[in-house]
Design a protein around this nucleic acid. Sequence first.
DNA 1: TCTTTACGCTACGACCCGTAGCGTAACTGT
DNA 2: ACAGTTACGCTACGGGTCGTAGCGTAAAGA
Lengths: 209, 209
Amino acid sequence: MLSRSNPRNLRTGRPRSAAADEAILEATRASLVDLGWSKLTMSDVAARAGVAKTTLYRRWAGKNELVVDAVAVLFDELEMPDLGSLSADVQAMVLQFAALLERPETRTALMAVVAESTRDEALRTRIRDSIVDRQKRLVLQGRQRAQERGELPVEADEEAASATADLIFDVIAGAVVHRTLVSAEPVDADWAGRFTALLLAGLEAAAST
Amino acid sequence: MLSRSNPRNLRTGRPRSAAADEAILEATRASLVDLGWSKLTMSDVAARAGVAKTTLYRRWAGKNELVVDAVAVLFDELEMPDLGSLSADVQAMVLQFAALLERPETRTALMAVVAESTRDEALRTRIRDSIVDRQKRLVLQGRQRAQERGELPVEADEEAASATADLIFDVIAGAVVHRTLVSAEPVDADWAGRFTALLLAGLEAAAST
DNA sequence: TCTTTACGCTACGACCCGTAGCGTAACTGT
DNA sequence: ACAGTTACGCTACGGGTCGTAGCGTAAAGA
C-alpha cells in the first residue's frame, strides 16, 4: 500500500503481475457461475486463470478471501440514481440491488461468505469494508438528497440520525436479500413499488412524531 | 410415511433406531457449535453420535440435508405471543427471532444452507417446508389477531392480502437476519422498538389509502 | 552483474468424501 | 423355533482437495 503510493516504488525484485490479479478474479467469478460456491476449488480457479495454484495462495489466504474480492468489484456498479423523488430513487435502488443478486456469481457467493464470516472476524471486516459499506453509503447519499429536496427532515441528533440510517439499511438490504435468496421469488417492479411505499410511509409517519 | 400411519406397520425387518435419529441431530448441532458449518464433517458427527458413518448416509443424502433437519427443530420454539397489541406482538416476535439467530448453531448454519440452496432445488424446498413456512405462519397468525382486535383492516382481495403478507414476512425476517448476520450488530429492545414503529407506521399509512 | 522478489512446476502428507462388502442385530410372519 | 427382511457397525477403498515445501527460472532494481 505505502509502496504503491510512493512516486518510486521502494520494493525491489520482480513485481506482482496485475494482469494475473485480474485473470484470477475473473476466473473466480466464472468458476462461481459454473460450479457454485461449494464446488469451487482453488485448483479449478488456478487452471482457469492460467496460473499456478501456489500463486493464488501467495495472494489470498484461502477461498473465502478470494471470493470476497472477486465479488466485491461487482458492487461498484451500484449507483444511487437521481430521479427527482425519494420514492423513485429508492425503488430504482431496490431494483438495481435485486438485479445484482440475480446474477449467479453473487447469488451463490454472498450468503456463503456471510455464513463463513460468522466464525471469522477478519473475514467479517473484509466483507464490511469491501461490500457492506459500499451499499450503506448509498443510503446516506439518498437521505441527503431527500433532505435537500425537503422530503425528509434534517435530524438534529447526530446519533439518532446514524441509528436511523442503519435501520433503513438493514430493512432495505435485508428485505431484498430475503426475498431473492430465501423466498426465492423475483423482485419485480411491482414488489419494489409496494416495498418502497411501505418503507416511505413508515419514514414519514416516524418523522412527523 | 404411509407405513407409519398404518395401525400395523407393514414394514418388516429391523426398524430404524429413533434414538439414533435424535442422537445424530443432537450431535450435528453440537458439531455446528464447536466447528461451524465449514469444518463440520460427516465423520465427526458420526463419532459424536456414536454411530457408524454409513448410518448417516442411509438416512441423509449429505451434509446439507442433515444440517437443515438438525436446525429446523429449533424453529419450532418460535411462537407468536399474544400481548394485547400488534405493536407488542411484533416487537416480541422480532426479539424472539433474533435470539434464535444469536445461537451459534443457527448463526453458522442458516446462511450456509441458504447459500447451498441457490444451486439445489430439492434443498430449497426442504428449507422452505421445514423452516421458512414455519416462520411465515407466524406472520399470518399475527395479522389475524390484529384484524380481530381491529388494528388492521380485513382485506377484500385475497391475492393482494397474500402478497402483502409475503412482503411483511420478507421485511421482518430479512431485516432481523441482515442486522444480526451481515451488520453483525445486536437486535436489542431499542432496535426492535424502532423497527416495529417503522413497520407499523408504514402498514397503517398503506391501509388508509 | 548482483540482489531480491515473483512465478511455474512437482511432489507430498493429511484429510474428507461417498460407497462396497461383510457379518451381526433386531423385528415380523408362519 | 425358524426363515425372511431390514438396520447396523466395521473395515477398506479410490478419488479428490487442501495447503505447503522445494527448486529452477523470470523480471525488476541497485
